[in-house]
Design a protein around this nucleic acid. Sequence first.
DNA 1: GCTCTGCGCAGAGGA
Length: 887
Amino acid sequence: MNVRGPVVDAGEVRSVNTSYGQSDLFEVTVRPERGAMEPTRVTLWGKWAELADWIDEGMELLVTDAEADEYRGEVQLSTTGDSFVVVEPDFLVDVTDVRSWVQCPRMYYLNKLGGIPLNYPVVKGTLVHEVFGDLLRGRDIEESIEDRVEERAVDLGLLGRDPTEVADEVRKNAAAIEGWLNQGLLTEEDEWRSEQTLVSETFGIKGRADAVRRGIPVELKTGKNTRSEPRFQDKVQAACYALVLGEREAEYPDTGTLIYTKNTTLERIEESGDLSPAKDFSVSGGFLKYVVRQRNQIAATEFRGDVPTGYEADAKCEYCFEQDTCMVVSGRLGQESKAGTVGTPVPDEERAYFDTYYTAVEAERRAVHREYRKLWEQTAEERADDDRALIGLEPTGREEISAGRWRLTARKQPEAVSKIREGNLVLASEGHPTRERAELGRVERLDGEEIVVTTDEPLALRRVDVYPSELTVDRLLTALHDAILKGSPERKDLLFGRRAPEFAGSHETYIGNNEAQNEAVNLALNAEDVALVHGPPGTGKTYTLATILREFVERGDRVLLSAFTNRAVDNAMEALIDQGFDDVVRVGSESGVRDDMHEYLFEKRGDPVERANELREAPVVAATTASCGSRMLREQEFDVAVVDEAGQLTEPGTFLATNLAERFVLVGDHEQLPPVVQADESELHGSLFQRLIERYPDASVLLDRQYRMAQRIQWFSSQEFYDGKLRPATPEVAGRSLADLRGVDPSALPAHLRDRVTYLDPDGRQVGNTNPTEAEAVAETVQSFLDAGVAPDDVGVIAPFRAQVSEISRRLPEVAVDTVDRFQGSAKEVVVLSVTTTGDVESPIFEDHRRMNVALTRAKRALVVVGDEAALSSEPFYERLLRWARG
DNA sequence: GCTCTGCGCAGAGGA
């Protein structure tokens, strides 16, 4: 039987004599999660007893194949020879992390913290792996090499490598594999699967195997291995995959294969007479358990929030490549380290800051892990409700689009809604993402009836799940590392409030008709380190930002333009282009970047020198903050970073962009929506923008004149969020009404909708996160505006909940209906807000009043608030809102 | 018990 639950009590290790000889035992008490079982004592025998050093009360424990017996009248459990003990099974450890932990626990930590920079051996290794995958999928070797090298042009260009020489080197490595593969294929029936994504629900391990051959994991290594035996950490890596494969097939492979391409030089062949680059090794049950114990050490360390010292294992620091980094990091952070320390520690407050944010980012990582858990924990029905997956798909086709690239098509239920969008990374499966055949893929197309996914290998497409990614979390950590450990003292003095921002230079007129905007441009241009531009709704912050960018370029600065979302980056670029400047390189993915900006999209494929130069010499590079954390952009330097919608960025998120530049300008509005953060009790909720603007008001400018809303519409927001400072830019703006719109006849509207701000209580009732009666009233209201001549394109409907959005959307197919969060950044002539809730405003979504600020400031000429009076009267803020809306 | 965008997927290697 299996038992799983939190540890409520942990004892001491004892050594006892058994019929099999001397053995250690360690007793823990676990409160089982499922069933009505009382807390149960579980005895962990033999090597599992080492967990005594790692287990704390509160940690979750899973013991498989435990045996029940009665001892002194009490039923208790013991591990058996088949048992595995897994600490915090929900914490998904990467296979590569187990690998580095085995080398040295501190290397695991350092890799996580600093990331791995762009270097040639790694790029070459990646290339050989890609060619290997292509070979397995039947592609011609020369074609593959040529294509893959061309694909990596930027990396090779930035590293100053000649593509012909690189191709030669890759060819040497790949030829050895090809010869061996052909030999194998002639003699036996081989079944190969390349690039297998594996996730284990039992062992809390995830990773991607290079290949699986007849159920045996195959790991390719391009590095040198001069000894005849496989490297230990390579075996560990392959054994991890064996563990996950075994879980799925209910039988563990007893072998692993490692392929060392460098071993097949002519000299070696002559020396050993051995043609094969492949080495098989046996994977015993004992080895699998060793791997799980290592994985447990990582999970326990993360649970405790400990930092590995290196003493946990017996690696020798003098041979370690990371020794210098290790010593510097421990020196800067005052950490204990086996390698010793060098340098002076950062001040206490920086250390405290680092610790706080490190913990907060790790909490986000655990939130991502919870998403993974949902992959297998939920039933199909729950999954359908959760809308993270599309289930019950009917496979309709598969075609090979290029060697080893497949396009899978399936029919979906027209009413099935999900958060899956085109361009998303997904797990495509034949029914269950971890128990049945599954492939990582990308959504190519998605409409009402059909979904198209591209994958490396074909399968019958029956289900598509969102694939959670730790990528951004990893990048936040490196941004934190770069900012605090590698940041200049001047920059840090500023971040920690020890020095006020400085400004120097003359005051010029850049924008003649708006004093605040002109002030903002001056402030940005004169900033020696930072300038902050506070732009409430409709105040022309994007225009101002574009002017700032243009003036920076004019005087010879190289500029990074960044924001959290692709949409914001594209908008800012558009404004820049509107001002007549288009010498911009847009870094990003095809699916993320808006179609009309594709002509500026940076092409990574081609000639290395050309590609690298285009990037290095671009006066303006535009990318999301997540992209700024990519290896390619981390290599770039800028004079100044201009970050839009900075109020939506966490502090480490902001660093992703600002780390790359000498100076920075943050543009945003902290009175609109804050960063999206998964962990509730997190430091990440506040933005750097807000903290700096509060600390250094003199380094900021408030854009106080808005060009969007009629006076009546903007009043509430101005009073509640901007101390009444926000005002219409011109009398024309102040007096805006529907009558100004061509073809609109306001007198055709029902009387209760004729004012610029109106209120309506449809007497509905909240059902889940919807309110059907209210949705109906919203639809009727919108219809009234359409009947009065308002174009569908000029109307927007906003609701807090996604469920209510789809409820309304069904009734109004031709009108833009979206959540408040997704509406941020855009505006409409007419906006109808569906408050949805009834009785009270207790849901956490109503707690942050800034969400309402966004919702109420999208309308230019007419705003209708639709909601339950009782709910709106139940809290002072909403009561003021109601009073204003009623007029 | 709510909102949700990113990402060149994860891993590639060096004595």
